[in-house]
Write a protein that binds this DNA or RNA. Sequence first.
DNA 1: TTTTTTGTTGATTGACGAGTCAATAAACTT
DNA 2: AAGTTTATTGACTCGTCAATCAACAAAAAA
Lengths: 202, 202
Amino acid sequence: MPKLGMEPIRKTALVKATILEIGRAGSLDVTVGQIAKRAGMSTALAHHYFGGKEQIFLAAMRHILSLYGAEVRGALAAAKTPEARLEAILLASFSATNFRREVVSAWLNFYVLAQTVPGARRLLHIYQRRLHANLTHALRPMLGARAAPVARALGALIDGVYLREALSERPSDGRASVAMIQAYLAAELNREKTTELKGAAL
Amino acid sequence: MPKLGMEPIRKTALVKATILEIGRAGSLDVTVGQIAKRAGMSTALAHHYFGGKEQIFLAAMRHILSLYGAEVRGALAAAKTPEARLEAILLASFSATNFRREVVSAWLNFYVLAQTVPGARRLLHIYQRRLHANLTHALRPMLGARAAPVARALGALIDGVYLREALSERPSDGRASVAMIQAYLAAELNREKTTELKGAAL
DNA sequence: TTTTTTGTTGATTGACGAGTCAATAAACTT
DNA sequence: AAGTTTATTGACTCGTCAATCAACAAAAAA
């Protein structure tokens, strides 16, 4: 019963199934058979469309990344002030989506993959650069030249907080994480004011 | 030629070989055969002493953790002021040791393992709690009651910076990381002063 | 209508790997 | 000396899995 134009349908089905299976296994120890079964087709077809396991994983990584990117863009679109922009990035980064089992698993395993698979490493750097650009853009009006270094620290802080939250025994929703990071930012902003105050005090 | 008392020798040889193999593979996709071969024995012996692959991995994780713990304790012993204590923790956390291929691989894969293997998760939480305790202890004299929340953020920041540094294309030595984190701390300490200044300004 | 392209799978290949076991041997105990 | 514990391995079992292939079916092109 071959209907034509199946390729994109099959491919997205495989990508989604891959992410779900990675979540179920908690690792990349997932067989093409399991993926294909969940996607409702034979293993041969999975190989037909993707050519191999690694390419399926890379496609899954791209998918996760593009989901996150869309979430950030969506939140960012509605934000007008720099503060709102920052909050939008944080809320998108710590949304419930990103704490779903499969998504956490995908991210952790992508870090592992990024060590050895050049394609995976490239994707990870794309994510990091995009985050850095978004943060710098939001911080510039508040911090001027100091925006870039603060954005670098902030990016690392986001990753670190996510890592801990994702692996904590009782994961709270992301609000506590967002608040914690905003507190850090408050300290950084405070610096500017301190300089002014010191000037006024003299 | 069975000399007695081989058990501890064989076990540590296996643990070290495991870590090296994980570094070589970049993942836990490592066979007992490879580990045993590198450790200079048969696979049967590896199974004899550890009972299974998972227990070998857990022993390796324990080993990495104890190495890190020793490094921190060593650095901490020589530190007398709170500031020195903090710097000791940072220097130990970003020492060259922790950026060796095998060590990075081990950490990344242990994060993955911690999702599904209870023993691994427990070990990870031991690490996190110990780090938090060390940080809180060092921060208390400077920050008083605010030591705990700042220590939580600082712990996450350390993990996040390590993650990025470990996966960056040209890894610098840890000095830049340490400096970045100290800058964050400076902002936090600044807060206290700001409060005082504000009081004085009124 | 023949041919080509696209979709699809069951069956197979070829390889690898975790864990077990029986057997061998040295050292220690009684 | 006989028996027990510890060390050690080669060979084997049983299972899995990625990748390939031949073959079938339907739609589109010629």
